[in-house]
Design a binder for these strands. Sequence first.
DNA 1: GCCTTGCCTTCCGCTCAGCGGAAGGGAACT
DNA 2: AGTTCCCTTCCGCTGAGCGGAAGGCAAGGC
Lengths: 251, 251
Amino acid sequence: MSGGSGEPGRSVTSRVLAVLGAFDTGHQELTLTDIARRSGLALTTAHRLVRELEGWQALSRGDDGRYHVGLRLWELGQLGSGRLREVAHPWLQELFGATGENVHLAVRDGLEVLYVDKVYGRRAVPILSRTGTRLPMHPTGVGKALLAYETEWFIGSYLARKLERPTPHTVTEPGRLARELASVRARGYALTYEEMTLGSCSAAAPIMVDGRPVAAVGVVLSSRRARELPRLVEPLLDGARQIARAYGERG
Amino acid sequence: MSGGSGEPGRSVTSRVLAVLGAFDTGHQELTLTDIARRSGLALTTAHRLVRELEGWQALSRGDDGRYHVGLRLWELGQLGSGRLREVAHPWLQELFGATGENVHLAVRDGLEVLYVDKVYGRRAVPILSRTGTRLPMHPTGVGKALLAYETEWFIGSYLARKLERPTPHTVTEPGRLARELASVRARGYALTYEEMTLGSCSAAAPIMVDGRPVAAVGVVLSSRRARELPRLVEPLLDGARQIARAYGERG
DNA sequence: GCCTTGCCTTCCGCTCAGCGGAAGGGAACT
DNA sequence: AGTTCCCTTCCGCTGAGCGGAAGGCAAGGC
């Protein structure tokens, strides 16, 4: 028994996606062997797929022979949720100009927030959130802002799970978190203090289009300057409204 | 003769990529039938592939049933040339702060420039270059800056082709273009006046790492304000140097 | 009402594209 | 010379994938 038609029950497409899926934020450069291991494919199979993907510039090889995600995939990715970023960016820029703080744009993806754009200066607080980063919803400003405006059913099932607790300040007790989400709805914005990382705090507002939260804008700053947050709320809410209006048109 | 193993000589991978390739800047939303037509696949085949890709969120379906590029692909794409963008962004931001003009970051891809990041305000000149846009090299500032520092062989073969001429101001005559590239090398930056679009002009500088042009920064402004360009050159060159230094470390 | 036109979806039998074990090669350490 | 990493090529077996045909479903014309 040598060869045969491979492990049954997996489509070729799934194998291609498994190869691509081997790359993530922590593994941007992989050897062929890494890819095979991480995707669960035989070395030979991974080799062929990688070569084909390389030919299309979906993957490319660095000088050291390691593979990384190619330009063509980046280019393709730009087409995804492109309009939101394009519409929102000038307003993020404006908000950055008005506040001088790190400004973020995030959308919900499953049970997490995905950071899709950000504007920040050179003197910014070091932050986790590269664009493309995923974080849980409850410890982040943008996450709370989005979660608060989801359906009751969604919020219920979110709170029913065991929630991660990245810092001692993270609110994970369902009752207290539910009350906090209610106050987010009452005020129209969310606040966090050292819930995701020690040393930073944030404010965030949802971007509501047709009564649904399509994205959220947030500012992050050093927690030593937490008392400056209230000053940022007005421009933040204004920015969120402007983006919602611009995005709602011809959407 | 019904069925069979499909059009021979095409790998499954190539079919997957053909489906993805059906999407481009001008076609961000496609029906299944569109995808089949544009990718040259049978409807049934396209259908199956699209379903599999949808399951992985590489594609997703809008409310109107049309497909568009999904979040997961965008996320994957973020891993491509991520370090360059991450390192360069704060400096682009700085440059925007110092000049108030549209700031771009671009890399060479084949015979074109690919815009990978940009910073711009709300009052910006309307511009062609979304991130993910491709443009030819010779009519753009960033393109000239990159082309000038390529190998002699590359420049030769670039000039040997028939060059596009998007405006009457575009320089396409090989001799003149070669002289212009020489003066770019002499000065260290490139200038354009209405060569890509009427109404705008630009200045751009290469980001040199280990003697190779890895990217270029550029500013674009209204051609009525062309006389302000010299004022922007110093911050531009400085920004390019800073990015080169930061990118060169631990590269 | 009925026909047409445009989509999307399911069914199914034929076949070759793809699979992976085995083997070979090369570079960098010990 | 031995060991341990990688990467690459070869090749025979087979079931995953192919696409024509047929069915559904909604919107518009008459």
